[in-house]
């Protein structure tokens, strides 16, 4: 049976309708990216001032790091919150007895996540320009590769979390809020992987983010695209995404055997 765009749209519409009637939810989308940007933007300004050097590069790296890492964080939260929304509203039973395929549900959740991420980052990008005179678009076309890679990373983390929700039910809900933030130290957003202890460096290098941010620093400091790092990031993302899809499929089947689709919200 073919994938139906109408069914995917049904689930996107379902989430947009929630945002349409709730301004606090809309505000929340932009709240954390903006808050992080303000904290790190002022920090960057202060460091540049203290070191009495042209702070533009250090500051740019911090601000660009904040903005780009938010892509992964928002991307992940967009998917997992969309799924949790169905658990909280006790609606999964209706969804899974409709003709909606799991792949269509995922496509809808990923689409909503993309919209949330763009909506969340837009105000932060404007504020970065107005307050810190930093224009992230000056990174050039390579910015699109950073964006896609970091969003993909957020998505495969999210698929892993949704798989855990299938296995452990709503009890695993806290993971939705914590896992991606917990990865931040080894994502090498603000420093290169070499700044980590030797035993932790392989962990960082296994994550696409460390390569993307190495590419970002190369772009900012050397004004050159770091293609090998970006290629590694893309290859790692592909591998992790495939693994996440396999785990998601296995946990979904397991949930149908255990009856977890009926009791997941309890």
């Amino acid at each position: 049976m073919k994938t139906s765009l109408r069914r995917i749209w049904a689930m996107i519409y379902r989430h947009l309708a929630v945002y349409r009637r709730s301004w606090p939810r809309v505000a929340e989308i932009a709240y954390w990216p903006t808050l992080n940007l303000l904290i790190w933007g002022f920090t960057a300004n202060y460091i540049g001032h203290l070191r009495a050097i042209p702070g533009a590069q250090t500051g740019s790296a911090l601000i660009a790091g904040v903005l780009l890492w938010e892509i992964t964080l928002r991307g992940q939260l967009g998917v997992t919150l969309g799924f949790l929304e169905e658990i909280w509203s006790r609606n999964l039973g209706h969804i899974f007895v409709s003709p909606l395929r799991p792949a269509e549900l995922l496509a809808a959740l990923l689409s909503v996540s993309l919209l949330r991420t763009l909506a969340g980052l837009f105000p932060a990008t404007i504020i970065a320009y107005l307050l810190y005179h930093y224009n992230i678009l000056l990174l050039g076309p390579v910015l699109l590769l950073f964006f896609v890679n970091l969003l993909f990373m957020g998505w495969w983390i999210a698929l892993g979390i949704v798989s855990l929700l299938f296995r452990y039910g709503a009890g695993a809900e806290a993971l939705a809020w914590t896992i991606a933030f917990g990865i931040t130290p080894v994502a090498c957003v603000y420093y290169p992987a070499t700044a980590l202890p030797g035993w932790l460096q392989p962990v960082a290098m296994a994550l696409p983010a460390a390569h993307v941010f190495a590419g970002m620093r190369a772009g900012l400091f050397q004004h050159a695209a770091d293609w090998p790092d970006l290629a590694q990031a893309s290859a790692l993302n592909l591998g992790w995404m495939l693994l996440a899809i396999v785990i998601f499929g296995a946990e979904f089947r397991r949930a149908r055997v255990r009856g977890a689709l009926i009791s997941i919200g309890e």
Partner: peptide, 23 residues
């Protein structure tokens, strides 16, 4: 009655969602 419809969506929105799901 033991499985709910999304509480924050209006009745019309709920019916629209399921109408699309069932084509």
């Amino acid at each position: 009655p033991y499985i709910a419809l999304p509480a924050r969506l209006s009745v019309a929105e709920n019916l629209r969602v399921y109408g699309h799901l069932y084509n």
